[in-house]
Design a protein around this nucleic acid. Structure first.
Lengths: 106, 106
DNA sequence: AAAATTACTAATTTAAACTTAATAGTAGGG
DNA sequence: CCCTACTATTAAGTTTAAATTAGTAATTTT
């Protein structure tokens, strides 16, 4: 997929941004949250890999860590990117739903 | 991302299935269609790679080729998988929208 | 105290996506 | 009728993300 301004934008990325848009969380808490609202179980390798990429891009930022937890919050840029992504997804979902409902039989 | 029953399910995959749910198309026509309804320009490597994976999984199937075109149509299985995916995406989009609207300032 | 859960790190493998280029047929305009 | 642009696919090489798995260690629960 090509998304000129945004670079790659994976499932894991927008799930994490969605999770952080209800407030700062550390990795493990995101895992739980994402599993609950999306049914997707992100494995540690996927989750923490995506987290460090998002941090590098400036879409999330770390907060002072508590004990052994490393909490993050979404940045202004991250929220903007998520808003854009959500708008696109909404559009795609609506097209897919319309087309599927017109599919005879299948 | 893990999706036990479905295996990987990429952006390119559901864009192609969405495209084919308005009727059979060959690769190039999918490219055009997808660009129009999603704003995503799938490059040939991505598109034809995803097509052959979808065929292998039985979610799309080839029709007799016309001239130099290789048209495909979505299968019953493919439609079922897309329906499921769309339902999940709808759920995720709705959560993200709610959370974003509650994000003060950002 | 043992077991389960929390929380993250790390390494390897697999597979997808990006990029780019090559190929070749077809159509339209000057 | 030749040149260009568009149509349509194949192919190759590189990069990156994701899956898988294992390991560590602290905390909580039983």
């Amino acid at each position: 997929m090509k998304k000129k301004e945004l670079g790659r934008f994976s499932d894991a990325s927008y799930l994490i941004l969605s999770s952080l848009s209800s407030g700062p969380k550390h990795g493990y808490a995101m895992m739980e949250d994402i599993r609950q609202f999306s049914g997707t179980q992100l494995e540690p390798g996927t989750l923490y890999g995506a987290i460090s990429r998002l941090e590098k891009q400036g879409w999330i930022e770390p907060l002072p860590s508590e004990e052994r937890r490393r909490p993050y919050r979404i940045t202004t840029d991250g929220a903007a990117v998520l808003r854009e992504q959500v708008a696109t997804l909404e559009q795609v979902v609506s097209v897919a739903k319309n087309r599927l409902s017109a599919l005879e039989g299948l």
